[in-house]
């Protein structure tokens, strides 16, 4: 069994299905990319795993991290699990860090609340964490305030805070979106190195399939709350089978499709309250046929499509 097993995760809020039956597994030490555009349900999935959904949200399914089912936990057990079983690294480091607390205080607070170490060890543990995430001069930066750090350094502090209680699962929500081009690769390589060394399972959330291709072992592509394609990153890239995955890759301006118009996908992603019968991608799909408008395609061999690319034999 994998370190993380999510089965049939669904979220419904005020009658709208934000996420519909997401299943995925992550091995210890590996990164799994959860990719989708706005409205795909990727952040809803992260919030469901952390149990941060608004009151009234109906959650179905299970999410096993080791033997702990995050979805079934009661309030007290949930408090213990957050940080220790599952931790989150947020997207916007300036907003996620408290401007009046030093770097050190962010880490020692986390360690103290979760009683991860004794009081005497707090400081040395925090400095060790900062060193592990590659913050230069960790002992002196311990006393620095967030505004005195650069964007990349703040991102490292957030990563250190997320790792403080040695979680089994790290959820990183768009960890490189706010970073400059020359920094993105550095942070991705850092996360992958930590995952390997700590045997950490990482769920990497991104709107950009291309950006995460080199660090993740597997990828799940979401569209309008549903999983449309899943598999090893290399395979999904080389031979995307769902028309949406294919379109996402083709729509990106890239050296290999230089010249002429980009292959844009017409229309927009439907909202959670928009009723789209059958496959939710069918109104925008060039391959759609009558069946796609009626019948919801099941995920077969990692692809939820009645007429997958390269799968003409299944017609």
């Amino acid at each position: 069994m994998s370190a993380v097993e999510v089965r049939g995760l669904g979220v419904e809020l005020d009658g709208a299905k934000l996420l519909d039956g997401l299943s995925l597994s992550i091995e210890a030490g590996a990164l799994h990319a959860l990719v989708g555009e706005s409205g795909s349900g990727k952040t809803t999935a992260a919030n469901a795993l952390l149990r941060l959904l608004p009151e009234g949200a109906k959650v179905r399914g299970s999410a096993l991290v080791g033997t702990v089912d995050l979805i079934a936990l009661g309030a007290a057990a949930l408090e213990r699990a957050r940080g220790r079983t599952v931790a989150m690294m947020l997207q916007e480091p300036l907003a996620a860090l408290n401007p009046v607390l030093t770097v050190g205080a962010h880490l020692t607070e986390t360690l103290e609340v979760h009683r991860a170490v004794t009081k005497g060890e707090l400081r040395s543990r925090a400095v060790a964490l900062l060193e592990e995430v590659g913050l230069p001069e960790p002992a002196s930066r311990f006393h620095a305030y967030p505004h005195q750090l650069s964007g990349g350094q703040r991102q490292r502090v957030l990563l250190a805070a997320a790792l403080a209680c040695e979680p089994a699962l790290l959820i990183a929500d768009e960890p490189t979106t706010a970073l400059d081009a020359s920094m993105k690769g550095v942070v991705l390589a850092l996360i992958r190195g930590l995952a390997e060394r700590r045997k950490l399972a990482v769920l990497l959330i991104s709107h950009d399939l291309w950006a995460v291709r080199e660090v993740c072992r597997d990828v799940s592509v979401l569209y309008a709350g549903r999983l449309v394609e899943q598999g090893p990153v290399a395979q999904v890239f080389a031979r995307p089978r769902h028309p949406y995955t294919h379109a996402l890759l083709a729509a990106r301006p890239a050296p290999e499709h230089r010249g002429g118009a980009l292959e844009a996908i017409g229309g927009v992603v439907p909202g959670p309250n928009d009723v789209v019968p059958g496959c939710r991608f069918h109104p925008r799909c060039p391959r759609a046929e009558a069946r796609c408008r009626i019948e919801v395609p099941a995920l077969v061999d990692g692809c939820a499509c009645h007429f997958p690319l390269g799968g003409e034999g299944r017609r």
Binding site: S150, S182, M183, K184, V187, R213, E214
Partner: peptide, 15 residues
């Protein structure tokens, strides 16, 4: 960095 996602530039853009 455009071709190899894991390529970065050491250090950070200056302030």
């Amino acid at each position: 960095a455009r071709v190899k996602a894991l390529e970065g530039t050491p250090g950070e853009p200056p302030s």
